[in-house]
Amino acid sequence: MKELLKVKGLKTYFYTYEGVVKALEGINFDIYKGESIGLVGETGCGKSVTALSIMRLIQWPPGKIIEGEITLDGKDLLKISEEEMRNIRGAEISMIFQEPMSSLNPVFTIGSQITEAITLHQEVNKKEAEKRSLDMLNLVRMPDAEKVLKQYPHELSGGMQQRAMIAMALSCKPSLLIADEPTTALDVTVQAQILDLIQELNEEIDSSMLLITHDLGVVAQVCDRVAVMYAGYIVEIGTVKQIFKNPYHPYTKGLMYAIPKIHVETKRLEVIRGVVPNLITPPSGCRFHPRCDHAMDVCKKKAPPTVKVEEGHYVACFLHGGVK
């Protein structure tokens, strides 16, 4: 498979009053053309920062991309001008956010917000753009699309707002869609519909997707591959099948146990012990070692390198290599 996006050695820090938050500590991963990749991990591990870094939307101050490469179709996004980057945002790479309500501008109509995205990146007149907005709303199966064009965000339900966000994000047929917990803020009943919609449309316009979520069930359902993040590192990456069947990293294993298994009667819901580390003064060596049952001496001293454990399956843990 061909890579669409390559992330190499990406480091993003936030310079706050309390200290430097080392949110990303040199992460590497690829996104292939047409695939869906899931990004999972506990809260605060750096998933959103990864997404925003790819969009180059980390705001300075306090945040800054320190180093690394993000190549899209061979072009390093961290080297191009802001203007070139603007042409990529919303056209080549689009993003959907967690809170649809607060992510839509409250004082503009849904129609004008979608139309704005279309006229920005496509050579169409206003009328045509409005027509395409309506098409997009129909595409995301917005009930009463014609009326919604003229409505304001607060007049829609959460599910409808998120449909509008999806319509906006896909309106320019991006080659990569980043969805940052697109269903977390929605009612349980709507979550599945929205997820199906994203997946279906994404296949239809043949774009890749980076899906950020807490929910491994969602990953299993939607994604081809998964990357597991822990405290600013990607600790394991592989196909859904590899990771779910055969997790290597102790943290990934912990996550798997944390999924409630309805059919397995006896197994109680296990959570990983300990708390998410503070990223200002992170643990030395392997950042997971204070919570890891298998921690060895070396784990406290050195960060484990990423090693290949099978074709397309990589893990960063001394249990699986890297110890000299």
């Binding site: 925003l52 969009m55 939307l57 705001q59 203007e83 603007r86 042409n87 990529i88 945002r89 919303g90 056209a91 689009s94 993003m95 956010f97 809170e99 607060s102 992510s103 839509l104 501008n105 409250p106 704005e116 995205a117 920005l120 990146h121 966000m165 906006m168």
Partner: peptide
């Protein structure tokens, strides 16, 4: 300028 919808506006590619 720190709100979510401003982030959305930037993510659209607006100047």
């Amino acid at each position: 300028v720190r709100s979510d919808y401003i982030r959305t506006a930037r993510a659209k590619g607006l100047r």
